[in-house]
Computed example of a mutant assay.
Amino acid sequence: MKTDTTPHVLITGGAGYIGSLLTGVFLQQGWSVTVVDDLLFGGASLLGYWHHPQFRFAKGDVCDPAVLRASAEGIAVGDLPPAHFDAVVHLAAIVGFPACQMVGPQVAWRYNFEGTKRVFAAADAARVGRLIFASTYSNYGLSPDGTPVTEESPLNPQSLYAETKVAAEQFLRDQTAGATTIPVLFRFATLFGISPRTRFDLIINQFVLEAITRRKLIIYQRGYARSFVHVRDVCDAILLGLMAPPATINRQIFNVGSDEGNYTKDEIVALVQRYVTGTIVEYKDLTFGGDMRDIRVSFAKIREQLGFRPRISVEEGIREVAGVLLNGVIKDALDSQYRNAQFIVQ
């Protein structure tokens, strides 16, 4: 029986782009945090929390049966003693279509689908209250008529990455009825902004980096529209998902972003040029078998049911990323640790 009243969260993939920022947000809110991560990109993003009395870390692959072991005492994570968790935030995954293509279908499905089932099973066996699952609006693919997609719109995944996420969503929605753990499914828009492990394979961060380091952007699919949300706002959405009444969020899907975050690539380029003067833009035609997205997204559901309203605009995020790079705060942003895979400006 848990006697400590401090809420405790388990974050899988907690050393990554979202998780490394989310860890600090939870600690600031008075939570205890246990992070499990295999440290594919290192663990420097967690050093600021290392000596926090409410932070624990275990190195490990969530697909390994020895890493998450549920029992009556809670969940044992790696070599850490069992603990009772109030929530699990499942971020661990092979993220993005380039990374999934690089590791291949077998590995991508193992991490993104089988890993999700394993994490949920451990949470449910340990009677964890709820699990936040990080999904993606890539699941929608291309919008045939330009109408903003909602959580009820048909899914048309265009990549291996999206296929694995769709399958994981279907498992959480269709095969968890009656479980103790309540799954909540968040389809994140394209993220941007600075975190302890900033990624530069995301379109806004990437455009700013390219403009500053090369003074040139080569743009493909120039008219395509996408939706964007700041990584800090995603952390706020996760907190809301953990505080909402169970009936509101049980096995529910929420698009995470705002209507103000819908932009075309041309509009993003214009904003980047405003903050990185002298940037030359070259447009090219290219067709490739990647994660093709040309959609606008409706975020009415998360706004109306969870009260989610992002605080950081795309323009503020561009200014933030530019400021960090121009001031040399991240000196090695071209290094592989800041990318999930070799990228192309899409």
Score class of each variant (00 low, 15 high):
residue 197 R to Q: 10
residue 319 R to Y: 08
residue 46 L to N: 09
residue 243 M to T: 12
residue 267 E to R: 04
residue 302 I to G: 05
residue 19 G to N: 12
residue 154 P to A: 14
residue 196 P to E: 00
residue 316 E to I: 09
residue 245 P to V: 02
residue 60 G to N: 07
residue 331 K to S: 15
residue 62 V to A: 13
residue 220 Y to E: 09
residue 14 G to M: 02
residue 66 A to W: 07
residue 122 A to R: 08
residue 160 L to C: 12
residue 21 L to V: 03
residue 248 T to Q: 14
residue 20 S to Q: 10
residue 205 N to R: 08
residue 24 G to Q: 04
residue 342 Q to I: 14
residue 346 Q to T: 10
residue 341 A to L: 00
residue 176 T to N: 06
residue 99 A to G: 01
residue 29 Q to F: 03
residue 240 L to I: 09
residue 343 F to L: 12
residue 259 D to M: 01
residue 163 E to G: 06
residue 152 E to N: 05
residue 346 Q to S: 11
residue 81 P to S: 15
residue 144 P to H: 04
residue 309 R to K: 13
residue 280 I to S: 14
residue 45 S to P: 13
residue 142 L to M: 06
residue 338 Y to G: 13
residue 79 D to A: 13
residue 33 V to T: 12
residue 64 D to C: 07
residue 270 A to R: 14
residue 254 F to M: 13
residue 95 V to A: 11
residue 87 A to M: 07
residue 205 N to Q: 12
residue 282 E to Q: 14
residue 186 F to E: 00
residue 241 G to V: 08
residue 203 I to H: 09
residue 93 A to N: 03
residue 223 G to N: 07
residue 330 I to G: 15
residue 300 A to C: 09
residue 154 P to K: 13
residue 92 A to D: 05
residue 42 G to I: 04
residue 286 L to T: 09
residue 146 G to P: 01
residue 47 L to K: 15
residue 48 G to F: 15
residue 132 I to K: 02
residue 226 R to K: 11
residue 14 G to P: 02
residue 170 Q to P: 00
residue 32 S to H: 09
residue 222 R to C: 06
residue 344 I to W: 06
residue 31 W to F: 12
residue 20 S to N: 06
residue 114 E to L: 15
residue 222 R to W: 10
residue 146 G to L: 02
residue 304 E to K: 10
residue 152 E to K: 05
residue 119 V to E: 08
residue 307 G to K: 01
residue 101 Q to V: 00
residue 346 Q to C: 07
residue 293 R to P: 00
residue 8 H to C: 06
residue 172 L to N: 04
residue 6 T to W: 04
residue 229 V to N: 12
residue 31 W to S: 04
residue 117 K to G: 10
residue 203 I to E: 12
residue 314 V to R: 05
residue 97 F to Y: 13
residue 153 S to I: 00
residue 73 E to L: 10
residue 221 Q to I: 05
residue 205 N to H: 08
residue 234 V to L: 02
residue 205 N to P: 06
residue 214 R to K: 15
residue 71 S to T: 00
residue 271 L to V: 03
residue 303 R to A: 14
residue 245 P to A: 04
residue 279 T to K: 12
residue 261 G to T: 01
residue 5 T to D: 13
residue 231 V to Q: 12
residue 170 Q to C: 06
residue 341 A to T: 03
residue 236 D to E: 07
residue 64 D to S: 09
residue 42 G to H: 04
residue 217 L to T: 15
residue 222 R to Y: 11
residue 274 R to G: 00
residue 168 A to I: 01
residue 346 Q to H: 11
residue 290 G to K: 01
residue 120 F to R: 01
residue 241 G to A: 12
